[in-house]
Simulated scan of single mutants.
Amino acid sequence: MKIAALSDIHGNLAALDAVLDDAHRQGADVIVNLGDIFSGALYPCQTADRLKPLGLPTIRGNHERQLLSNDLSRMGLSDRFARGSLRDDQLAWIRDLPATLKVVEDVLLVHGTPESDLSYFLDTVTEHGCRVATVDEVESRAGNTNATLILCGHTHLQRSMRLDDGRLIVNPGSVGLQAYEDSLPFPHRMEMGSPHARYALVTRTAPGWDVDFRAVEYDWHEAANVAALNGRPDWETALRTGYC
């Protein structure tokens, strides 16, 4: 079984199409979507129209949860832009997305961790910035989750860790946005360092799961130009460079 894990598309339709094409060329048996699908400065409505007919196993991220709020005044720029672009039928589809999902009995999809769509699984934020999480930290976040493979997103960074009990946690990185800044719980930056669209191929083998992190070219300059036209210089820089 070869799983193409996609996460954090953020309305970047061109990046999504490039990743879907690559996943098909690589012979993926199933493509899964780990949430944060629409919010941003690009093409939320068109991204929903592209994805909905595909029927991919899909969960919601924190941004799906946030943009369904009726209080627009409390939304960030990315959620407000998506909410203003999405149609009622698309919002209804989003409301039906689960927070977590088992694709098969031993493969679990989560956005952040099994318990939270806002928590980082494989990274830890301190007052000094963000660092790779320790095995003890990741084991605590995984808890008693019964899965040999846990696929997570949220941080936009490609990362994997195998626990002592054999469970593998994989973050495929972000399809649509390769850098961002956040102020909580402490100010930090998440940067992939290049503008390529990212995803992961995870293959079941006799010894266990094998991970292939993918970086795919697409027209990121055009995406950056759209972000600039939509008043998001932060997105323009991230899309063009992979840095904040």
Rank of each mutant, 00 (worst) to 15 (best):
V138A: 05
R198A: 14
S140R: 13
N62Y: 00
V175L: 01
P172E: 11
L149C: 07
S7D: 07
F213K: 01
N33P: 10
H63S: 09
L118F: 11
P44T: 05
L42Q: 01
F213S: 01
A223Y: 04
T100K: 04
G11K: 01
D71A: 09
E115D: 15
T155W: 04
G76Y: 05
R74H: 13
D8C: 03
H24L: 10
Q26C: 10
A200F: 07
R198F: 11
H221S: 12
T148P: 07
K52H: 09
R131Q: 13
S85R: 10
G153H: 05
Y180D: 06
A48R: 00
D117N: 07
L67I: 06
S39F: 05
L122G: 01
A215N: 11
R232N: 14
V32T: 13
A238G: 08
T58Q: 03
R198V: 13
V211N: 03
S140L: 12
V226E: 00
Q90P: 07
L201N: 04
R131P: 05
L109C: 03
A227T: 05
S39T: 12
P53G: 10
C152A: 15
C244H: 14
A41D: 08
A142I: 15
A206L: 15
F81K: 00
D8K: 01
V211W: 03
E64S: 01
L122F: 12
H128N: 12
P187E: 01
C244Q: 13
D212R: 12
L229V: 15
A224V: 06
Y180W: 14
L109S: 01
Q46F: 09
Y199S: 04
